[in-house]
Design a protein around this nucleic acid. Structure first.
Lengths: 204, 204
DNA sequence: ACCTGAACACCGTTCAAGT
DNA sequence: ACCTGAACACCGTTCAAGT
């Protein structure tokens, strides 16, 4: 005698809704996350979800923001500022890649910056601490973030296509085929990061 | 007495449909591109559009692929391989930024690679011509493409937010505010590109 | 404050049919 | 080959109402 009363408190809160939404995105992709599906899985009327989260767009932002908080907990490790920055970008890349489905969602809604923001702040402070001047620090930080964002995009797409069981590229020809099958992304990422760091923080 | 016959040839072809779709995306954004809206603007039954393009997804791909062809016509200019590669990445960045709405669409559907593909091939051949060995050429090409893709993403988002009349970032605090207001992206892009080029094609 | 029911104005897509 | 009409199975969102 517990589940047939008319409509008592459902006892739902925003966090539970976001958590269930994350589960859907992670198991079935962002397209499967509809307000109606979500509410059905929560055993609740769609409008209940609206009451708690406003609308679909802010639900999506909430999902990304929540994942960003997880990633934010990172303490940069290393004995020199340069090492700590390098550690930060590597960890960010790994974390984004690990939460692939949410990251893809972030790209779909144009909210990569939410995912990367904590890292940006951490890197900027490292440069400041190392005495790099304001403009140089800004240039380098923006470049490093662009590299992280660029690499994760490329790598996430590859992962998606691989998961779909697609050939890397249907129209492959010479040079392009070599590139789509290229699997030294770790090395390429290192190359880019180290090259940029050399420009602002030469290895002592 | 010309417009009330039952249903003669509409005389439509795939290219005209894609062209009209591009117009919608460029003037009202990708969300405004619905199969029904598109067919209405073409003065045609929705199913006519389906007959020509298959479904919405392949229409979106066709839009991106067509823009990619425009960008592909680029002949790299410069007297050295290094200069030609640098020219290529700069032109690609400019071209992507110029077709902002289609580029955003490409990111939404995960098809940035279509936009960048011609550039990838051109750069790879330059490296080959310069005698850079296969692995190094691959590493550098992948890095350069990631930088182009990373920077254009970041810059397109900024443009979007500016167009929306939004403040750069509602939650701005110290370091982050400095970064969102940072407007030396040209210089940061140069820094990243030159740094990577230094690693594989040291300036003679 | 928290939740439901019913409805509005859309979607993408398919199917059978016309010329 | 090219096109229409009608329908299916959904959407996001809002509004009035209940407790």
């Amino acid at each position: 005698m517990s589940s047939r009363k008319p409509h008592p408190r459902a006892g739902l809160d925003r966090d539970e809704i976001v958590a269930e939404a994350v589960r859907i995105v992670e198991s079935e992709g962002s397209a499967a996350l509809t307000m109606r599906q979500l509410s059905a899985r929560l055993g609740v009327n769609p409008n209940t979800v609206y009451w708690h989260v406003g609308n679909r767009e802010s639900l999506l932002s909430a999902i990304v923001a929540q994942k960003a908080e997880d990633i934010a907990g990172v303490q940069l490790k290393g004995t020199t500022p340069r090492a700590r920055v390098a550690d930060g970008v590597h960890r960010a890349r790994a974390a984004i890649f690990e939460s692939a489905s949410v990251a893809v969602l972030a790209f779909e809604i144009g909210a990569e910056h939410l995912l990367i923001r904590p890292l940006a702040v951490a890197i900027a402070s490292e440069f400041e601490a190392a005495g790099v001047n304001g403009l140089d620090a800004g240039l380098a930080t923006v470049s490093l973030l662009a590299v992280v964002s660029g690499f994760t995009t490329v790598e996430l797409r590859r992962k998606e296509r691989a998961a779909d069981g697609l050939a890397p590229d249907a129209l492959s020809d010479g040079a392009w085929r070599g590139l789509t099958e290229f699997d030294h992304h770790d090395a390429a990422f290192d190359l880019a990061i180290e090259a940029i760091l050399d420009a602002v923080l030469p290895a002592s």
